[in-house]
């Protein structure tokens, strides 16, 4: 398991809140994985959180819908709701230009 300290070293840090068994959550997982692997190489940490298993985290991070991607870095903290199919918008939020 990765430690918190190790996570901190990465430039990009995300938490994806999903329901796991829904179509949108499935798409969101697929999409974020594709983006991360394509653009961020090893320079990211991604935690996929099943809201059913971790209801406390829902409250902590003030999540109202699933799937929600919580972008912790780069700052400021941003939230993105939906299945993450709009790649351009996401890259913009990451401050990455699509070449």
């Amino acid at each position: 398991m990765k430690t918190e300290a190790a996570v901190d070293l990465k430039k990009y840090s995300f938490k994806l809140f999903v329901t796991g068994m829904s179509v949108s959550s499935t798409r969101a997982i697929q999409n974020i994985k594709t983006i991360c692997e394509s653009y961020l190489a090893d320079n990211y940490s991604l935690e996929i959180i099943d809201v059913h298993k971790n209801p406390m985290l829902v409250q902590k991070y003030d999540i109202i819908a699933c799937p929600t991607l919580l972008i912790e870095r780069p700052e400021p903290i941003k939230r993105l709701i939906g299945d993450l199919s709009d790649k351009e918008k996401i890259l913009k939020l990451f401050n990455i230009k699509n070449t």
Binding site: M1, V18, I29
Partner: peptide, 22 residues
């Protein structure tokens, strides 16, 4: 790609769910 895993799978591999999903 694993999008859901129940707690039995965590126990089977002896790992945290968050490291298995995804």
């Amino acid at each position: 790609l694993i999008v859901y895993a129940n707690s039995a799978f965590d126990r089977l591999l002896n790992a945290a769910n968050a490291t298995l999903v995804g």
